[in-house]
Amino acid sequence: METKPKKTIWVEGPISADKIAKSIAAHQTKKDIGAHSIFLGQVRADTINGQTVAGIEYSAYTEMADEAIAEIREKAFSKFDLTCMHIYHSVGMVKSGEICLFVFTSSTHRKAAIDACDWIVESIKELTPIFGKEWFENEEYTWKVNK
């Protein structure tokens, strides 16, 4: 049986504006789509105990994360009237100001695209085993905790 190459959500380092632009352009041939919704997570230069975050080094339990993402994807398609969806997350170092999460949902009408995008982002944060080492400018670090 022919199997499609397994899609991966993982991007080494930051997600480039070019990747996002190309992803948008790739949908121009799908003319049943009337609405896209995009969420971009950006690394914030938080100040923690007087020190500024220079970047976050992401790591993941990728085997479990891939299963979690597959479930999120399946549920998203059953909950919302989506035409397609794409998820990308960084692993490795992402400097403050750079993009670490890209969620892209498309539908015939806006509501499904917007609601699905929001639901997917919340689900990723809750269910996907991704960890972040927040590096400070002085090369010390702390571990990020989601709020």
Binding site: G41, Y58, A60, Y61, E63, M64, E67, H89, C100, L101, V121, I124, K125, E126, L127, T128, P129, I130, F131, G132, W143, K144, V145, N146
Partner: peptide, 26 residues
């Protein structure tokens, strides 16, 4: 086996175990 345990769960020698801090994706 890649699922968070919320209640007691039986194990065998081939169970895949991992200890995970709170998640910080996104």
């Amino acid at each position: 086996n890649k699922k968070i345990v919320h209640q007691n769960h039986p194990l065998n020698a081939s169970s895949e175990l991992a200890l995970l801090p709170p998640f910080a994706g996104g």
